[in-house]
């Protein structure tokens, strides 16, 4: 093939000028042809790829598997989006022809980066807005309604003897208003946990866990082996939101009776692990609301450069792990 190309400089030029990496390999995986971009993206040593085996070039679990299937003939083609390879993010496509296969590689690192920045700013804007509304409720409306309640109580007290009937009605209005006030407080809390901003992640998770325990819906335990050193606030908020979402899923969808929330710090990583004993779910068959919840978790994990792992099977509960590197932050 190389010979063929050397005789046909037009074809060679086309391949070299292609805006993506091109590799052709034979039936046993030996590379016959490459262009400059392919060498840049795939080669570790920047040496030519020709005569080397394609499988050796991609020593990443999912790629090895797919390439083996192509070579053995059990697969005709594959597309891998967002392959993390050598600190790059690549899109790899492979098509099998009779005697050879062609593989194209695109470097989408820059686009991923832009996408992440966009996602991050969406999350931040959303959190800011939540915080604004929560503060408005907690510090604005909350005290106002308390004041109103106090005034009603004063009036009720003053007319207790002269007009007991109205006083009783006022008292029941006071009671209703108290319920409104406590509802407002819990809305404000789920919008933005002040404890998180004031006292950090572990205190906030403890408060969250206490709240669920108080509701008597389920037993939940927080096992913390993280000293609580301050992390970047956006990291704390992301981990908190992920935990909130997972607990919510466990209660609402999985009907769990026992949940464990753990923060474990190793030398380099911080792991958040949420286990539950609920119904579990099939990752390939999610309800819409569960799917949205999980994709939020996915997005927040990505923004932290973390790793997300979800294990669940129907009837087996679930274990969700988010691991982030402590040195980057």
């Amino acid at each position: 093939m190389e010979q063929l190309l050397s005789q046909n400089s037009f074809l060679r030029d086309v391949i070299d000028e292609a805006p993506y990496g091109v590799v052709v390999f034979d039936a046993s995986g030996v590379i016959l042809l490459e262009n400059e971009l392919a060498r840049q993206f795939i080669s570790h040593d920047n040496q030519s790829l020709v005569k080397r085996n394609i499988k050796e070039m991609f020593q990443v679990f999912e790629m090895e598997e797919l390439l083996t299937q192509i070579i053995e003939g059990s697969k005709e083609s594959f597309d891998v989006m967002e392959l993390v390879f050598d600190e790059k993010v690549l899109t790899v496509r492979c098509r099998k022809r009779q005697d050879w296969s062609i593989l194209t590689v695109q470097d989408i690192t820059k686009w991923k980066h832009i996408e992440m920045t966009a996602v991050q700013s969406i999350i931040e804007t959303q959190e800011k807005e939540r915080q604004r509304i929560a503060t408005e409720i907690h510090d604005g409306i909350g005290p106002q309604i308390s004041t109103t309640i106090h005034q009603l109580e004063t009036i009720a007290e003053n007319i207790k003897e002269s007009d007991p009937e109205t006083a009783t009605r006022l008292e029941s209005i006071v009671e209703q208003s108290n319920e409104v006030s406590s509802e407002l407080r819990s809305i404000s809390h789920s919008l933005m946990p002040r404890v998180l901003l004031d006292f950090g992640l572990t205190a906030a998770l403890q408060t969250l866990v206490n709240r669920v325990n108080n509701s008597n819906r389920c037993k939940i335990e927080f096992i913390n082996s993280f000293s609580g050193e301050a992390l970047d606030q956006s990291i704390e908020l992301n981990l908190y939101r992920i935990c909130q979402e997972l607990i919510n899923n466990a209660l609402k969808h999985a009907k769990a009776t026992y949940i464990f929330v753990q923060l474990v710090k190793t030398e380099e990583h911080l792991t958040l692990m949420v286990e539950d004993d609920g119904k579990g779910f099939d990752l390939n068959n999610l309800k819409l609301s569960e799917g949205i919840g999980l994709s939020n978790i996915e997005m927040r994990t990505k923004v932290m450069n973390g790793e997300l792992n979800i294990d669940s099977a129907p009837g087996r509960g679930s274990v969700v792990t988010v691991e982030i590197s402590l040195h980057e932050h």
Partner: peptide
């Protein structure tokens, strides 16, 4: 820091 809350409490306590 809430004038309204202060006023409410004041009215209630001064009574």
């Amino acid at each position: 820091d809430h004038a309204m809350f202060r006023d409410g409490i004041k009215a209630m306590l001064n009574a």
